[in-house]
Design a protein around this nucleic acid. Structure first.
Lengths: 345, 345
DNA sequence: CGTAGTTATGTGAACGGTCACATGAACGAC
DNA sequence: GTCGTTCATGTGACCGTTCACATAACTACG
């Protein structure tokens, strides 16, 4: 049915190899010949077969992207950004999601990608379990991870989550808060670990105590549940309770604010809240959420750059991280102050 | 380097064709032989080459998914759900995103998918422009669209957005609201059109007037801007102004609420708001957002079913739509009432 | 115990490209 | 005019499967 390279060659009166040359490095062919070939291509509506190409050249031009299930803002943005960068570099991206973070579903996901002859694997799911499982898998293609704990054996690129978390915590400290709680992300998440580490180190640098954080699962619901518990424990608003909370992501921040609000606790009047991600809603919530913005577009292109480097066989140079910047909004204020430090736009 | 089918055959002492049979329809091979072959496969860590398979069988086992840029909740959820369904059916999904909705970037995106020999194309971007462009493209693979306006030439599956929009509007009418505004999604979006149509028809059925809606772009920022204008125009809270707003998605709803709140207008006390999507945050906002929940998982599997039907050559039977259900929360209340009709959990 | 009928396995040619190498034409230098 | 170079193009093998068909092995049955 569809035309192949020989059909084109015949119509243009050249050999199949010349057509192939026109397709790949056009400048090795005399202009007049190239014209004839291109005309034939157009006339037959010819498209080279990716399968045949991949088979003969041993390069599939496909990259595998591994990510977690939920439609989370961070991973979703990373995926989109990487997808764009990959297309720009002439690669297709094939995606595998893992509904649950366990070894089995992970191996399944990776398998489905490898079965497709992907040239490299990109991990958006920065997860302890994933790294362990992969290490035991003897994977023959380069691995690039979007994560911040730079471990051996991987190319990795990350947004400076540690620095972002420190900035968020510092902001609270500078506002005079001395009892700064952290609501962490899931234990298995390396991003969550980095954010917690940043919070802990910044507190330590200021000589302030850090109580072990409760961990949510990134969802607003988990933030709400944790907020309720906090309220129920009676520590908030009582003497010695936290006056500020650093949530590991905006969604949990939303849940926490909801729980506090429904208990009559004012944000930021009674408790200041900082989130992480700068989801599109953040600026428009009441109160608008102070948060840490990540540059996902940059992350995407850096990931792609790392993939290309890995494919060229360069040793992993641990790209400089993309930046994370603190965005101050109305959900944080001077300790003891009843009104937001920043006027609502 | 990597083993191929002949290596396996040699090791197992059979012909390459027998190995192929074990790989594909195992029951045509004697159990003892199959055992030897499987052992050889494991020993050599053999994986069949997808490229060679695709080339010989003329089936790539890859589906193309076309979607828009931003990390929106609806499209993102649809993508994830479809991805799962596809893997279950033994297909890989390759994704192309279009940063802007114009003909050129769309053709580019589709091209990058077709170049990969996808067996079918799934459109998550329900957009007038996309349909037109595709119609002029003489695409040789089946097309399945996730959209609700069932047009000829496509298999299509959708969430019943029209019905959802009517339910949302009816809810407001039942609460006594007679001036119900709609803040629509982008003009090019068919989903937006369906939601608007539902709103319009429900108002008409109740004999209520419908003022032409302002259109946002799904983002909270656009909702906020529209909310500000509304406030500035002075119509809200004055006699004859709207007492309820149906926002085409939750994110715009958040923006609208933010704008109203910053002008001292109470939701739902002064104005009731309904959104659409039931984003994870919706239940935890203050006020919690009344909205319409869509069943994306079901949509995903129905999409996949439609793809399989299309691949079998069945004519498009326009699947029954997945349902959308109204979730009543605190952002709507009886007209004139100052307190939410639903108690915050 | 020969033979038809089934079942298990083998053989060689596609599939549609790329790769390595061969050939031929054009050109400048001596 | 001959020869080495470069540039443009052609030739045939090969990538790793599946497909259609051929053959061998085994079963059932008179």
């Amino acid at each position: 049915m569809a035309a192949n390279i020989s059909d084109v060659a015949k119509l243009a009166g050249v050999s199949h190899q010349t057509v192939s040359r026109v397709l790949n490095d056009g400048d090795k062919v005399r202009a007049s010949t190239r014209g004839r070939v291109e005309a034939a291509i157009r006339e037959l509506n010819y498209r080279p077969s990716a399968a045949a190409r991949a088979l003969a050249s041993r390069r599939s031009r496909v990259l595998g992207l591994l990510m977690t299930g939920g439609p989370l803002y961070g991973p979703g943005s990373t995926m989109l950004a990487f997808n764009d960068a990959a297309r720009l570099a002439g690669y297709q991206v094939s995606i595998a999601t893992m509904s649950t973070i366990d070894r089995e579903s992970m191996v399944g996901a990776i398998d489905s990608l490898l079965a497709q002859d992907v040239e490299a694997l990109v991990l958006v799911v920065a997860d302890e379990v994933v790294f362990e499982a992969i290490a035991g898998l003897r994977i023959s293609v380069p691995l690039v991870a979007a994560e911040s704990s730079h471990r051996a054996g991987f190319h990795s690129v990350a947004i400076a989550q540690y620095a972002g978390a420190r900035a968020a915590t510092r902001h609270l400290i500078e506002l005079g808060h001395t009892r700064v709680l952290h609501v962490a992300g899931p234990r298995w998440s390396l991003d969550a670990t980095e954010r917690e580490r940043g919070w802990r180190d910044e507190l330590a640098a200021a000589g302030l105590p850090a109580h072990d954080p409760v961990a949510g699962d990134w969802s607003p619901a988990s933030g709400y549940a944790i907020g309720r518990e906090l309220v129920a424990s009676g520590s908030v608003k009582a003497g010695g309770g936290p006056t500020a909370i650093f949530a590991a992501n905006d969604q949990m921040g939303v849940g926490i604010i909801g729980a506090l609000a429904s208990a009559g606790i004012d944000v930021p009047g009674d408790v200041s809240i900082v989130g992480f991600d700068d989801i599109p809603e953040a600026a428009f919530l009441r109160p608008a959420l102070t948060t840490v913005r990540q540059d996902f577009a940059l992350l995407g292109s850096k990931l792609m750059a790392a993939v290309l480097a890995a494919l060229r066989g360069e040793s992993a140079p641990h790209e400089t991280d993309a930046e994370a910047t603190l965005i101050v909004r109305a959900s944080t204020t001077q300790v003891g102050d009843k009104r937001p430090a920043v006027a609502p736009d």
